[in-house]
Design a protein around this nucleic acid. Structure first.
Length: 299
DNA sequence: CTATCTGTTCTGAC
DNA sequence: TGTCAGAACAGATA
């Protein structure tokens, strides 16, 4: 589930909390979710958290990195206290212990940890813990050195949406090589633009008033410019709201995450067009993915 | 109960 | 090379 805004939210949340801390323990509960030697990271300090596309990396002081991909159902949850659900739920105004959760939204954010989906637990020198949960076990955490990390960042992903080089000329060049591809699959191709997934692509195309089925060869330059504007606008909105999360989600500052309250078309099939064009939100399948749009005002 | 759906990405068949 | 179904897995939903 996590797309760029969710992963960026995780990056920011973790940056505030674990930079400068030393990893003193790694508990691998689901081996298939962890690739590498867990002992190599023990005793090392977190220097920085970086994001690229939908992956986030914890950089350590020994030139090693923990790279995470949350896929559909991964979560990263930081807890200052081992597990004390009463403490978290009792305080009406303020949550005493610091905690932070990001990723797949379900109702486990402030439940007791570890739980049945917990794959990996990192323990820091101050006793705080970072839990990697993953219900469907598609996600992974890899131990990589700086060169390996850079190689992945360079070779597996296209431009970041907020890169200045992400412009109409770039997209038209890439589109010219696959002219018959529809715009939805084009924008969710991670080797073209990094970080856009099924939710944000539907929302961005609605904002740009382009039908998801449009072939990229039929898109005019002015429309590419509009698409870029919309993608950036929608992603920024997502980051601003802390990603699309469960309504129960409360971060350490007591704020509710909530991009889901601002979605206009995603999972809104049958409802009237939010732009009041008189049309109705339709749901079709593109590349096996649920696709939501208004046939009346998206052209 | 069964059948179908799900926010990601990779692989193999044609 | 492009396209598509199916795979990995564990639910929720109808």
């Amino acid at each position: 589930m996590p797309e760029l805004p969710e992963v960026e939210t995780i990056r920011r949340g973790l940056s505030k909390r674990i930079v400068g801390k030393k990893i003193v323990g790694t508990d691998i509960r689901v081996p298939k979710n962890f690739i590498g030697d867990k002992n190599l990271v023990i005793g090392h300090e977190v220097k920085e958290i970086v994001r690229r596309a939908k992956v986030v990396a914890i950089k350590l002081d020994n030139s090693l990195n923990l790279l995470f991909h949350l896929k559909m159902t991964g979560q990263l949850i930081y807890r200052q206290e081992s597990s004390n659900i009463d403490n978290q739920l009792s305080g009406k105004s303020k949550i005493k212990s610091d905690s932070f959760a990001g990723g797949h939204p379900d109702h486990n954010w402030h439940a007791e940890l570890p739980n049945s989906t917990t794959a990996i637990i990192f323990t820091f020198n101050d006793g705080t813990k970072l839990y990697f949960n993953d219900l469907r076990k598609f996600g992974w955490c890899k131990v990589l050195n700086d060169q390996e990390l850079q190689k992945i960042f360079d070779e597996e992903y296209g431009l970041e949406p907020f890169d200045d080089k992400f412009n109409a000329e770039y997209l038209m060049l890439r589109a010219s090589k696959i002219p018959n591809r529809n715009i939805k699959q084009f924008l969710t191709d991670q080797t073209i633009v990094a970080g856009i997934g099924n939710i944000y692509v539907d929302e961005s195309l609605f904002d740009a008033k382009i039908v998801p089925t449009r072939r990229v060869k039929d898109i005019q330059k002015s429309e590419w410019i509009k698409i870029i504007e919309s993608v950036k606008k929608i992603l920024e909105l997502g980051i601003q709201f802390g990603g699309t999360t469960d309504s129960d989600y409360v971060n350490a500052d007591g704020e509710k995450g909530g991009m889901q309250n601002h979605l206009k078309v995603y999972r809104k099939a049958g409802l009237p067009c939010p732009d009041e064009c008189g049309g109705k939100i339709e749901r079709i399948s593109i590349g096996g993915r649920g696709t939501h749009f208004c046939r009346n005002c998206q052209k």
